[in-house]
Design a protein around this nucleic acid. Sequence first.
DNA 1: CTCGATTAAATCGTGTGCGATACATATGTC
DNA 2: GACATATGTATCGCACACGATTTAATCGAG
Lengths: 163, 163
Amino acid sequence: MPDVPTSPLDLDQMLCFAIYSANGAFNRAYRPMLDRLGLTYPQYLVLMALGETDGLTVGEIGAHVFLESNTLTPLLKRLEAAGHVVRRRDTADERQVRVSLTDTGRALLQDACAVTQSLAGKLAVTQTQAIALRDAIAGLRDSLDEPASTKPSVAASDLARDG
Amino acid sequence: MPDVPTSPLDLDQMLCFAIYSANGAFNRAYRPMLDRLGLTYPQYLVLMALGETDGLTVGEIGAHVFLESNTLTPLLKRLEAAGHVVRRRDTADERQVRVSLTDTGRALLQDACAVTQSLAGKLAVTQTQAIALRDAIAGLRDSLDEPASTKPSVAASDLARDG
DNA sequence: CTCGATTAAATCGTGTGCGATACATATGTC
DNA sequence: GACATATGTATCGCACACGATTTAATCGAG
């Protein structure tokens, strides 16, 4: 084992940087197309969540897209102002706000999904690779979000070039 | 092939969302530790780039961390105001500004790298998995950033659940 | 039933990322 | 010398994202 004295970490070796920079690349790729639809990427994600299950509460949306209410509330208001979404207090529990897609919102979601489809063609991976990659990254995310999980046996000292 | 009518895209099936949410998870994990050091994550990345090669120009830093000068300039000024970095015009080519780590900046980088190391222990992947993952994601990023590359033979229609 | 604790949203302020645009300066080319 | 180009800088603007606080509604214990 070569002695690695001071700064053993190289930018291109870090898993977190790969994800950070890939996220930026996705944003750059999505932006011009989503701009035409008047959507931002997080807004698109929220529409997708509602497309799966309409009438989610703000908290439920947040659980899907990993955003808090302080981020979602203004975002949802923008979506509502644009007419893509309707916010309505739950009659049973008036603390909660239920969000539903409007017809135009649903149509917009269709267009946005087409954007994703077209973007998929640019990726330098096969479908099976993409699926494996997605699941691995999702697992990574979950292991980071877990408060203090019992790590699945990975020797921490072995992971010098991650993070 | 099953007919996939209107909204075949599920949030959890999308590769871009996995990356988006993993990036958020990394941010959440890094923030409390980097906060103690008075650094943001992109600032940390810039320090790392300078740790590899000191005296980079702004443009060179941008090439490393995939950020433009309009993002980097204010970031670098904050780093300079905090005393972690020195900006100096290149005497040979006065268009360029060369950025160098100060001693305190270099020390800070060490501490920040330790943060990454400790974080690596939380990841639910082996080292070999992490390396493969990192390379795959970096390849993804590069395929997205390429202007209009000849895609490596992936059937676009095969990639419905990516993007 | 009332009071206190808990929960869901909303709000406020701040920092930051990142794009668009405009502009100054230095370089290279004709 | 006049030109286009490249690069760094400054400004503006929007949208996140987080922390902390506030308000409203619900629930639970007494």
